[in-house]
Design a protein around this nucleic acid. Structure first.
Length: 448
RNA sequence: GGCUCUAUCGUCUAAUGGUUAGGACACGGCCUUCUCAAGGCUGGAAUCGGGGUUCGACUCCCCGUAGAGUCACCA
């Protein structure tokens, strides 16, 4: 039995912010390694010195860390030139590559590069996702594998590293299918055994183009900034191109690792639709306990609302049920948001104080006056959602919920949509609430 | 254009020769409800087209069509 330990890798080039497309590739490679008790390697492919940026490398590493995808080894290709040179020399010495005179076509082009001597033959390989794939490499020509002995290029370094790092499974995007025959040729020239390939389908933008900076790719870090939970992103992404055998879709990373099977990976590309991610995020937010919720919510709260305050405690259940991502908290508190009334009371049209089923000014006015009286009896220091509710509730039950509560809620919020009036009133406090109710009463008087 | 890959509801997908083609998101309706949500119930919605193979095709084969990827001294 040649039961070699599974080794997979994620090999991004640090030339842009880490986005969903590459993230899903990393996730599948990670899952496959973990479910086989194998190794997962992160390799930064920064041979393009012009486009590679440290900040992008940092972004990739931070995002991976945030998502909880731990790698066992880390490499940077820019630090491995010696190794590549050795192989380059071997390839030239054995006649598989040669130094080629060129006519530069673009600025930066060399007059001399190293090309691979293409044996021009058919290449066949088995892909774990797609089955057998055939290519005729004749059309590829003698492709460039290095700009100079110290500047190897993608195809070469990719193969050498996978070889040197003992890669057993190359799990990467479908966009690499057409690179595979070139790389197989290099493996053969070096005399190395082939790894197993698995090309997973691409993630597509809404217009069906490969997800990229130009086409709707949202950086993972931006989901983090908008208050999404990594568990939700993982769950959502895993289900793009893969599906368990049953219909249970809410899955932790551990459960995914347990159930995952690369043979069940879809062959066709999947459109990245944020709508379902939002749903997943809501599910995961709902599972959070208060402490974790607060921890996540903290940075999105308006300055005046401390997580330790009574106001926050009153708002907590409401926040939990309303938001889809923590970033929504900010929206809620904007002047046009559902909690905007707290700091921005809009002037109201008296007509809006009337409940649709009882559009009578006298009725509305009477209920406002009565509830105001009830509220006035409450002690300021024990003015909270529960005391407010119990003070008014008997009156509400006796006179009809809509008849009493609609004018009350409208008078203190001025908004069509808001939390229930008890929460609103307790948040505003006794003085402010009574003031707003008085204003509403006088509005009804003036016009009637 | 050459080469390669792909094709089930709007979206993510299940069903690997026999199902009333299933689930989820989104959408509509109803219930609940002072509003908005949430929740419950419920509805509409798909096998790209044409040929085969077969007693029987979403499923296998061929031809179209459509989409995607790739054709760098980027990765």
């Amino acid at each position: 039995m040649i039961n070699k330990k599974v080794v997979t890798r994620f090999a991004p080039s640090p030339t842009g912010l880490f986005h969903a497309g590459s993230y899903r590739t990393a996730l599948f490679a990670y899952i496959f390694a973990r479910q086989n008790n194998g190794k997962f390697i992160l390799r930064i492919e920064d041979t393009d010195k012009v486009r590679s940026k440290k900040k992008y490398e940092d972004n990739i590493i931070d995002s991976l860390k945030w998502m909880g995808l731990k790698y066992d080894e880390f490499y940077r290709q820019s630090e491995r030139t010696e190794i590549y040179r050795k192989y380059l020399k071997q390839l030239i010495d054995s006649g598989h590559a040669y130094i080629s005179k060129e006519i530069p076509k673009e600025p930066g082009d060399r007059e001399e590069v190293i090309r691979f001597k293409n044996p021009n033959r058919k290449v066949v390989f088995q892909d774990m996702v797609r089955g057998q794939i055939e290519f005729d490499t004749t059309e590829l020509g003698d492709f460039v594998i290095a700009k100079s002995m110290d500047e190897p290029v993608f195809h070469l370094v990719n193969v050498i590293d996978d070889l040197e790092m003992g890669m057993t499974h190359i799990i990467r995007g479908e966009d690499h299918i057409s690179n595979t025959p070139r790389q197989i040729l290099i493996y053969e020239a070096i005399g190395a055994p082939l790894p197993i390939f698995a090309h997973i389908p691409l993630l597509l933008s809404a217009n069906r183009a490969k997800l990229s900076k130009r086409h709707g790719a949202v950086p993972v870090s931006s989901y983090r900034e908008r208050g999404f939970l990594p568990e939700a992103i993982i769950n959502f992404m895993a289900l793009l191109g893969w599906h368990p055998t049953d219909d249970i879709e809410i899955l932790s990373l551990e459960q995914i690792i347990e159930k995952f099977s690369i043979e069940r990976v879809q062959k066709s590309g999947a459109i990245f639709d944020e709508e379902k991610l939002r749903w997943f995020n809501k599910q995961y937010i709902g599972k959070l306990n208060d402490n974790d919720f607060i921890e996540n919510a903290k940075s999105f709260l308006p300055k005046w609302l401390l997580p330790t305050s009574d106001s926050f405690k009153m708002l907590l259940p409401l926040l939990k049920e309303k938001i889809v991502s923590f970033g929504d908290i900010q929206v809620l508190f904007e002047s046009s948001g559902e909690l905007g009334f707290i700091n921005n009371m809009q002037s109201i049209d008296p007509e809006r104080l009337l409940w649709k089923k009882t559009p009578d000014r006298e009725v509305a006015k009477k209920h406002l006056i009565e509830t105001k009286l009830l509220l006035d009896k409450l002690d300021k220091t024990s003015f909270n959602t529960e005391t407010v509710r119990s003070a008014i509730w008997p009156y509400v039950e006796k006179n009809g919920k809509g008849d009493v509560l609609w004018p009350l809620r409208m008078s203190v919020t001025g908004q069509d949509r808001s939390p229930d009036p008890f929460v609103c009133i307790s948040i505003l406090g006794k003085d402010e609430s009574l003031k707003r109710i008085s204003v509403a009463i006088s509005l009804l008087e003036k016009t009637s």
